[in-house]
Structure formats: C-alpha cells, structure tokens
C-alpha cells in the first residue's frame, strides 16, 4: 500500500452532472443554503440538496416536531416550504450565486405535481448549457418522506408508481435526476430497480426511518403527529445495509445517507457501494461536519494510495 502524494480525484458523475466531490448536504437539513451561508463555505460542498419544494406553500406539522432519542433525532416537519412560486422568485436567484451543484428536492401530493414542479423550474432556468453551472443542476424526487398523509413515502413504496413518476419527470428534464428512497419498505432494491427502469440517473438512500417516542409521564407521544422520521447515528447501519443491497442491484450510482457524522461513517457508505454521500443531522450539531468529512476522506485516500474516489467500492473485502 503506497501513499499518494497528489490530490486524489474526488469527482463523481451523476448522469450529466459532475460533482466536484462526494460530500453533499441532505435535503431538509440545510434549507436553501442561505441559512448556513455565515457558517459554511457552501461553494466547497459536493452538492446542496435543497429543502423539498411543493407546488403550494406548506406550513408543516403541528409542534412539537423534534425529539432527540438515543443516538437519533425524530422529526416531523411535514415538508414545510414556501411553495413553487416563492421558490422560483426568491430562492433561485440565491442558488444561482452558489459555486456548488444544486439539486432541488421535489415533492408532490399527486403524480402530476412532480412533473408540474420540474416543468416550472425548467421553464424558468432554460435548457442546461454544457459546462455551465445553473441555479439548478438536478432534481431529487422525494418519494420517501414519512411525515405527510399524501405523496412522499406513499409513492415510494410502490415500484410501479416509482417507475412511472420517474419516467414522466425524465421526459421533461435533461438535468440530473435522482430518486430518494425510503427504508420503510420490504425490499429497497426493488424500488431502486424501478427508479432505474424509469431512467433515473441515481438513487439516494436512505430517507428517515419511521419512529416514535412516548413520554411516560404525560402518556403522550413526544412528536405531535405521533410518528416521525428517525435520523442520526442510530440509523447508520440501516443506511449502510440499504446502500449495499441497492448498489448490488442497480447499475446507476447510489448516493448514501443516514447518520453520517465523520469521515469513517462516509467511508462505510463508500465501501458499501455508494458513489457519493450526504450529511444531514450531523450538520445541526456541527455545521463544519461536511467539509471535515471531505478532508477526512481525502486523507484516507492519500494514506492508502487510492487515486480515484470511484475505486473505493472495489476495496470492500467481502464476497458478493
């Protein structure tokens, strides 16, 4: 094993999009970027996956929306977001100013809402130009949010629906198309295959795990809606296993997330077959986590003489 004395190649290709490095910030944990601009060098990120955008503004679920559990965080935000028109008018100009790739997380209550949102954004920003970073460089279809009655996870548990929605959106954009998967299914590989069949460029997994916590003093759930989505270190082994299963099943890149807080966590996902990763809950505790993770991955690659990020999965010593 020889160490590397030049910078390792960290680029990741997601369909037409080349990420400068594998470390992104997960949807719902980083707003639309602006909220963190004082604390994080956003331009240095591999990608920014925005808070979900729905057609109409959503005020979200009744509080309390958060509870910390052992090594985890249950949230039930309910996709609170300003809605498509406000996204187009107020968020796009800011996203245009960023130096990192931007992937817009899209959510709908009906199938046609996904296409309506992507169509409206495409119309606003025009066709992608070769080598030019737009205000939006790709879409992440949220077929996996556990915190709403309609849409989200309700779509992501049916392979036929996943394929159909993906195919419909594929027809209206040449930008990168990612489908975000839920672990709350019997066989996540089946859902990933459906996204691939619908011509997605990548899948991201996992969204949060359905969870519940109860206050035994008041005999009430600690989240107003009862159940919520569990994130944080508690779900990392679930995420790593899901990525491993999905990466063996599909040929498109897998973006891994779920409980990544340090470089070693990210490396677990990369070894399991992820092409890129996202950091979520860890940002709340340490906004510097994504860029610290990037440095740690680079150091690991240099020490082991790994030239290219895409070579990491081949280092996984496990019969497949």
């Amino acid at each position: 094993m020889e160490s590397l004395n030049r910078e390792p190649d960290l680029r990741v290709r997601i369909g037409p999009l080349v990420l400068p490095n594998p470390v992104g910030v997960a949807s719902g944990t980083f707003g639309y970027g602006q909220e963190y601009q004082d604390l994080v060098d956003i331009d240095a990120l591999g990608a920014l996956y925005t808070k979900a955008v729905s057609i109409d503004p959503k005020s979200g679920n009744r509080p309390p929306r958060l509870v910390e559990t052992p090594s985890g965080l249950i949230n039930s935000i309910g996709l609170a977001n300003p809605g498509l028109p406000a996204f187009l008018d107020e968020k796009i100009p800011y996203l245009q100013s960023l130096g990192c790739p931007v992937v817009v997380n899209v959510v709908g209550e009906t199938e046609s809402e996904y296409t309506t949102i992507v169509e409206a954004i495409e119309k606003r920003i025009g066709v992608p130009r070769e080598g030019m970073k737009g205000p939006v460089d790709g879409y992440e279809l949220n077929l996996s949010c556990p915190n709403v009655e309609k849409g989200g996870m309700a779509f992501g548990t049916e392979p036929e629906l996943v394929e159909r929605i993906t195919r419909k959106v594929r027809k209206i954009t040449r930008r990168a198309l990612v489908v975000k998967l839920s672990p709350n299914v019997t066989d996540i590989a089946q859902i990933a295959l459906a996204a691939e069949a619908g011509k997605a460029d990548a899948v991201s997994c996992i969204n949060t795990v359905v969870g519940m916590a109860i206050d035994v003093k008041t005999c009430k759930p600690l989240i107003a809606r009862g159940i919520g989505g569990l994130s944080g270190p508690a779900i990392r082994p679930i995420g790593v296993a899901c990525v491993w299963k999905v990466a063996r099943a599909v040929r498109i890149p897998v973006i891994g997330l779920g409980g990544i807080g340090c470089a070693n966590d990210a490396l677990e996902y990369l070894l399991a077959g992820a092409s890129a990763i996202q950091v979520g809950t860890a940002i709340f505790s340490n906004p510097r986590a994504p860029l610290e993770i990037l440095e740690g991955v680079k150091t690991w690659m240099r020490e082991r003489g790994v030239e290219k990020l895409k070579d990491i999965p081949s280092l996984f010593r496990f019969p497949s």
């Binding site: 944990t29 980083f30 909220e35 604390l39 979200g60 509080p63 935000i77 709340f284």
Partner: peptide, 23 residues
C-alpha cells in the same frame, strides 16, 4: 423557548403556532 435542532432557521423544527395561521 422551544426545542431546536439547527438554531439558524434551516430545519423548521422549533416552530410555534402563529395567530395569523401557519407557524
């Protein structure tokens, strides 16, 4: 006072119900 996750306005976790509707 409210429980918070991000503290900077990104996560929408610490909301209070607004009299005018929404949070």
């Amino acid at each position: 006072e409210q429980w918070m996750a991000c503290g900077v306005g990104a996560c929408q976790g610490c909301v209070l119900p607004a009299r005018a509707g929404g949070y």
